[in-house]
Every structure is written in C-alpha cells, then in structure tokens.
Design a protein around this nucleic acid. Structure first.
Ligand code: FES
Ligand code: FES
Lengths: 160, 160
DNA sequence: TCATTGCGGACACATAGCATCCGATTTAAA
DNA sequence: TTTAAATCGGATGCTATGTGTCCGCAATGA
C-alpha cells in the first residue's frame, strides 16, 4: 500500500496558499511553478481539493485558488481525504461467510478483523487531524532565514 | 489508497492456522479451500507470510504451514506488514527543495509534512499491533454455536 | 470584445495488484 | 527405492489505479 504522491502535492499547495493575503487568489500555474511541478496535473489535484471544500476556486481572469478556511482549521487529514477519497482503506470482503464451514444462520455482526483495521484507521485519522496547515507553515518558516522569507514574499507578490 | 485484499486473506489464514494442533501443518490447498479462495494465489500470500516469519513452512508430503509463534504473539500489524511490505506508506519526494524559491543552503532536517504522516502511521501501527490473532479467533468463535465449532473441528481433522 | 482562468472529460502511459501456471526441490509414505 | 504430495521461485497475462497531458466549455475581469 502506498499513499498517492498527489497528497504531498496538495499539502505543499495548501501550505503555499496559506501565505496569500485576504481576498487574493493564486492560479494553478503559479502554484505548480512554485513547486516545480507539471501545471496540468497540479490543476487536477486542486480541483479535488476544491470539490472537498478545502480550497475555494475563483474563476475568470486573475482567478485561482485560496484556502476555504483559516490554515489552523485545515488538517493534513482533510488534505489526504480530499485526494485519496473518503472511504476506509481496509475493505472486508466477508471471507468468513464463504467456504464449506460457514454457519447456516448468518448472524453476521461486525467482523473482528475489519473492526480492528477500522479502529487503527481512526487512530491514524486522529493523529493526522491534529496537524494543521498552520503548523506546517510555522515549521517550514523555521527552516528559512530572513532572506529566504523575503524572497518568497517577493515571488508571491509578483505572482498575485 | 486501498489496502491489498491479500491482507485479509492472510489474516483469515492465520486465524485458521491458530486452530491446528501442535506439530501439525495445513497445506495451502486446504487453507484456500476452507475460505473458498484460489489456491495458487493464496499460496503466494502464504509464502510472503513465511518470508516475514509469521508462519513456518513444512515442505514435502503431509507438509504445509503452521504459525511461527503462539497466536497471542502475532498481531494484525505483523500480517499487514508481511503482505504490504515494511516501508512507510507516505514517501516524501522533497518538493520543498524544488522550485524557484529554494534556499541556497540546504539545511534540510526532517520535513514537517512527512513527519506528521509518519507519526500517524506509528499510531496506526500501534493500534493494529494491539490486536492479535488470538483475539480474532476468540471473537470469531463467539459468533459460532457449538454445532458450528464441532463442524469446523471435523473439517480440520479431515484436512490434516 | 478578449485574454485569462477554472472545470470536466477523454486519452495515453506506467506501475502495482490479482491470478494462474510450471519446473525444481524437498520429504513423508508406499 | 520409488512415488506422491507439497513448498519455492520465477514467468506470464490481465486488470485496476495512479500519473500526466490535452482540449473544449464556461466564467470573469480588464
Ligand atoms: S470477513 Fe474477512 S475481514 Fe471481515
Ligand atoms: S518535502 Fe514534501 S513532504 Fe517532505
């Protein structure tokens, strides 16, 4: 099992969008260029983020994307779910109901194996849900010196 | 992202193997037949379990597989890792090091996004690791009446 | 009006998972 | 000693999903 690489793309895109001023919007091309990624595919992921309500899109000239909520209210779980989809990773194929030894009366409550996996996914979701885009931005800014921050600000001003 | 269906196959196989008596071994064909699954592919997953040290294989006539440890010492995480592989699900492609605004000095400690995902995977692993094959067997037995249990015991005796 | 931008679908490609088959090897039983 | 049963490992084909591109349409501000 591997997590789609698009999840990382979307996370970095949200981190960048957290830096756009109120009322502004960053185009898909600009977001892709900032991270050196192909514009067309990045646009696909941004559409998924928009459909999931993580970002809002602004159509037309000078349009683009901005965050739908403050960065502190967007978790990495929201991003992951927007790209990978909502359903559980583990799917119970009801193997226990197949084979020569299956009980004639179904009586099928929740299956123990599936229950354990779904419980683990809830722990995963809780851990990811406690890390927000705001946290990511803070930690990313900590790795930049003042000159790097000003260069990013200048790039952002030019791309707006 | 979806968990491979082979993980469920392997989990059910381990649950069945927990019922074989000391010194016995169940062939791949018997395990597949019990769960109504294709024998050839089930054999592949059993090989993976054997390579991961979850089960041990007995070659030759009357051979097959048995658990490598007591059922209470085999977790669903062990099963998942045997089938899906050991590495982390999330892979950091170092997008932060690409693009026009990358800092000239690398200074790259661990990245915040990847750290959050890996921490969530640790929570997932901890939750799955606390559920053992023994727990699964107990809960599965609770859904069977006495007649079902004796039928399974008879099937097992015939397949040995 | 016109350039810019998102939206949605169609398309091609690569990779991974699913499933089967076969020969080689090992081992217990006949 | 022979034979049958069973795992092991690789090769193969098929399918589903992810990756990446492209194009026409709709919307919107200059
Ligand atoms: S029956 Fe197999 S996981 Fe539920
Ligand atoms: S740089 Fe993208 S997740 Fe580490």
């Amino acid at each position: 099992m591997k997590i789609s690489e698009g999840v990382e793309w979307a996370a970095h895109a949200c981190a960048l969008l957290a830096a756009v001023p109120e009322g502004g919007a960053l185009s898909a091309g600009a977001i892709a260029a900032f991270n050196d990624l192909p514009k067309a595919y990045m646009a696909k992921h941004l559409q998924a983020l928009a459909k999931a309500g993580v970002v809002v899109s602004v159509r037309g000239a000078q349009g683009g994307y901005r965050l739908a909520r403050p960065p502190a209210e967007i978790s990495l779980w929201d991003v992951r779910r927007a790209i990978e989809g909502p359903g559980p990773d583990f799917h119970c194929a009801n193997i226990r109901l197949k084979g020569p030894c299956v009980a004639p009366k179904p009586s099928s409550g929740p299956c123990a194996i599936a229950h354990a996996f779904w419980e683990a996914e809830r722990a995963y979701q809780a851990a990811l849900g406690s890390m927000t885009i705001a946290d990511v931005v803070v930690q990313a800014a900590r790795e930049q010196d003042a000159e790097g921050l000003s260069r990013i600000a200048a790039w952002l001003r030019a791309a707006l």
